[in-house]
Amino acid sequence: MKTHIFPAIRLTAICFIFFCGLYTLIVWGFAQLVPNKGKGETFTANNKTYYTNIAQKFNQDKYFWSRPSAVDYNAAGAGGSNKGPSNPDYLAQVQARIDSFMVHNPGIKKADIPADIVTASGSGLDPDISIQAAKAQAQRIASIRQIPVTAIEEVITKNTKQPLLGLFGPASINVLQLNLALDALANNK
């Protein structure tokens, strides 16, 4: 064992310098060259800075809602619900979300409510909703904002992110950008 102690210590020291130090510095240095200097993807709208990829809480009826979050959209303590598919408390919670969604969106058929808008995301910070989830809310927003539904649907289509190269993965909509587009539409009216 003795013969191995000194190589162990010295080798660990150089690994520390190289993998903790140099490797991190190279990546960090490279990040200084890209837009926003490696502080996460942000954009500015109406003089306010937002993180593109971090979900915000939207529970007002005039906005498209984000997916439910098990951590109440806490971006400093993200997490999922970790509820099992058969858990009775969990299923009751989903039922409550369905009921609430139907109250806020009068006239909607249950079959038109997609699963993502009544289930919590993995991170609690899912910035996106499905196309169906946006469409299911169009009527509510149209009547509150007194904009024709067709105009709302146009905003939805315009903000839809198609699958990668049109071929891979699901289509989605960034809720924050959708809501900003909605506000812009209302202001221009």
């Binding site: 997916r67 999922g80 619900s81 970790n82 509820k83 598919p85 058969s86 969990y90 299923l91 989903v94 039922q95 369905i98 249950k110 079959a111 409510i113 997609p114 699963a115 993502d116 009544v118 289930t119 919590a120 995301s121 993995g122 991170s123 899912d126 910035p127 996106d128 909703i129 499905s130 169906q132 993965g169 699901p170 989605s172």
Partner: peptide, 24 residues
């Protein structure tokens, strides 16, 4: 999730609890 399907919610997107929309 068959239990959520029984509530009348369609499962076209699959089981979405704990999943993210951008991955599916």
């Amino acid at each position: 999730n068959p239990a959520i399907m029984q509530m009348g919610i369609n499962q076209n997107l699959g089981s979405m609890e704990g999943k993210e929309i951008r991955f599916g």
